[in-house]
Design a protein around this nucleic acid. Structure first.
Lengths: 216, 216, 216, 216
DNA sequence: TATGAATGAGTCTTCATTCAT
DNA sequence: CATGAATGAAGACTCATTCAT
């Protein structure tokens, strides 16, 4: 079996399988520089191999991106979905928001490359992974949560001025975005005491009661 | 025989100055594709001139980026600052937050290229404009607002779990980020009735009271 | 006007226009090594320029081949057609054959690159120029001559065993092919006295009377 | 640890010898695409093995070509020589020509890959097999036939304008060349009724009497 | 015996940059 | 002022070749 290798794993498996290592290296590079600015040379260097090997394993630059999407990014979505917990999308909006924040926070902790990659390549205009991803899982995932918020709104469980369609966008802006921008704002202040728990607490407080209300 | 042209503006100025047109074209391209993925050819095409002209006017690819930073991005920061209004950074945190949201919203309306460009190239790791911008104005601007929130927190004007250092990050995630990601989420639902006013109202409601509280 | 240059000539014309020189160099290389075995580097070297310039003028390797076809090979067909003389395809088959041999001989003299290029890239299986050329002019040209021979055959002007459809193939094998193979057979014998006139005479004699008959 | 394998046949021979199968596959590929355009990958695919195996058996790309030359092309020359029949090169030129045409025709029938391969790689300038082959057997074979025609010419058995040195070239152009170009001209007309016998008859008629003479 | 893994060299292509006009 | 011409450097991709198993 020769010819142009379509993405897939080599048939024979040896002790040191470089395929996952290459994908990990690609994920790291994509996360740091962005997909467009990442040359195969960078990924190869990060993985300690030659650029030609990337073609050997993945066939082309685009197929490598596809592999990253299939084997790293999409599973992550599943992971977030599972971590929404037994309640899933049901329950009060407060509970759903709490589970969402918690799930994102946990996922970010486990996969620090996620926020920048997702923000740049999925959420921003011109992102490379945007179209293929949204077509597949993203659309459904997104719309389910929006539907849950809309139902809550219809039941009168959300304040009048809160738009259920924008609530998920706001949540992403309060969780994924701060994580993606962390290298910047952590560079501007002393944030050594702000860990993921502290962030979670802050975000939850903000979404739950806002900054208004009566405090001591 | 001009020798190696020092980057900068051409020596003579005529009635048809292409310089601003080129910078505008560059801003549009940067905003859509990102700086790294934008070839001079794209900008030249957008501006209706030749790539060689970009060198004639700006000396190099990087100097053009610099010009965009100096003449479009930095002035925008000033604009936001001014729109924070007469109160500036003083007053209650609620008032400051309201003015901030309003100022960002107005600026986004006037300069739609701002959110994606800023998010990708300033706030994300690996952003090209990040270092030069933060060194100059960004740092100061950022820290002033954080300081205002910290003072309010010390005065007991913020709930206990709200971290004043994270509040600005949250605000950016609730204003600039949704605007940057608009092309994505507007594609996933019917959002024809969501204009910038509606977004402002939603965001303000969320930050003010959160989703909790008693509703009809 | 920038962007990917489709084949065509540069709009501005300077004293030394390299475009024809490059096409000539390409023709020479294609003729000697064959299209498939000719790297852009070879053509560039032959023309005294850099490979990048070939892209500047022609856009891609394939577009250069197209230009060679359009601007060198196809005009040659026209030339041969014109040199078939005022009689065109009419008259006795002997006269047509004589004019054909003469026309090919004259064309080969003027364009020594023609026989190898045509043989390898048009007449042989897998030839690169075959499909595009035959689709356009070749088919018509070929069939017209075959039709003329067929008509002559119907009028009883050709011997019984001569197949009019094969006659043109035979003629090409007696004119173009020997010219294409000349470097080989000239290397095997002393052929200094065989010029194009001598070849023409030999070929004409062979086709006219064959090797049989009564000789002194 | 075999060290750098001297090209040649593998050390041990088993019941399933892939060597001839590989050579056959190579012959097919060379005939269709030409040697220069044939990657080892193609041959391997055609033979149902891996490219690495070609190196294992032949040591290098060039040695495989050598093997094709030695074990397929050169034996073919012998075959043609034998089929020239008991008379060999003696007898009248008509008889020699008849035997030559017949021998080539029979060989082409048995080995359809021969005409394109031989034309492209031996007879044309830049042919890969040209030098090694002509050095060995070709030169001798060629010159013997030319000598026979020259002797006949001296004996007055050939018409005055027929050059004995060109006669063999003409014969090749009338036999091997039409077979090599068959895929092209068969595509331009209805030639279902033209088999190798019909071609032989046509060619023989042309060489014997030409197209002139008295016909009904 | 046979092959998957791995790579260096070479090819096509793009692009920022320079320069003469 | 403005651009067409020209190029070197770098990127993606192919391929013959090597090697460990």
């Amino acid at each position: 079996m020769t010819g142009k290798r379509t993405p897939g794993r080599p048939l024979h498996r040896t002790s040191t399988d470089l395929r996952p290592a290459i994908i990990d290296a690609a994920v790291r590079c994509y996360s740091q520089r962005g997909v467009a600015a990442t040359a195969l040379k960078h990924i190869a260097g990060e993985a300690g191999v030659t650029p030609a090997l990337l073609h050997y394993y993945f066939g082309s630059r685009e197929h490598l991106q596809q592999a990253v999407l299939d084997e790293r990014v999409l599973p992550l979505l599943k992971e977030v979905q599972q971590q929404l917990g037994p309640g899933g999308l049901s329950g009060s909006p407060e509970a759903l928001v709490r589970r969402f924040i918690s799930a994102v926070s946990a996922t970010v902790d486990r996969h620090p490359w996620w926020p920048p990659l997702w923000t740049r390549e999925v959420l921003l205009e011109g992102g490379v992974l945007r179209a293929p991803l949204i077509e597949r899982t993203g659309k459904q995932f997104f719309q389910q949560i929006v539907a849950a918020f809309s139902a809550a709104k219809d039941r009168g469980e959300l304040p009048p001025d809160i738009d259920p369609r924008l609530l998920l966008v706001s949540l992403v802006g309060l969780t994924l975005f701060p994580a993606a921008a962390a290298p910047v704002w952590r560079n501007l202040m002393d944030t050594r005491d702000i860990d993921s728990q502290a962030m979670e607490r802050h975000t939850l407080a903000l979404v739950s009661q806002g900054i208004g209300g009566h405090h001591a």
